[in-house]
Design a protein around this nucleic acid. Structure first.
Length: 134
DNA sequence: TAGGCCATCTGGTCCT
DNA sequence: AGGACCAGATGGCCTA
């Protein structure tokens, strides 16, 4: 990762940031394809999610139903919302990975969520350094 | 086979 | 009352 690389990346990020501020639209990565990891949807296609989710749900419901104070209907709705919330979180992390230089994935494997967050902090610090020195 | 990572479910808590 | 957020529990998948 050279200073030259960082300079180019910095300019790109800044221009995207400016357009974000202007339009209020969420950031869209301009990289053609996800570099090295699959999206949550790729990992768990709809059908698999359904089958997997059903078996887990059945077992847990039997196990804990007596404890729950919420109605079944409300509990199911809350579970669905939570699932969507966690998926959007995973998707956001997936997008965040695309902003990190490939150098951060030495083994060619997708970064884990924790690695993504830690490397992002590291990367932002490096970019800040460059801006401060300019 | 153990350990890491992940998605999902759940109950608790806070906020509107 | 209901939604959002959080943390713990659980089980599946994958890799060393």
């Amino acid at each position: 990762l050279t200073n030259m690389d960082l300079g180019g990346v910095t300019a790109g990020i800044l221009s995207e940031w400016e357009s974000l501020v202007r339009t209020g639209e969420p950031l869209q990565s301009d990289s053609p394809e996800p570099r090295m990891c699959s999206s949550p949807e790729d990992r768990y296609p709809e059908e698999q999610q359904h089958v997997k989710g059903f078996s887990i749900k059945l077992a847990r419901t039997v196990q804990r139903q007596s404890k729950s104070k919420m109605s079944t209907k409300r509990r199911m709705k809350a579970s669905e919302r939570e699932k969507m919330r966690m998926r959007s979180l995973a998707e956001a992390l997936h997008q965040l990975r695309d902003y990190l230089p490939p150098d951060y994935s030495k083994r060619g494997q997708p970064l884990t969520k924790i690695q993504t967050l830690k490397y992002t902090i590291e990367y932002i610090n490096k970019l800040s350094d460059i801006l401060n020195r300019a």
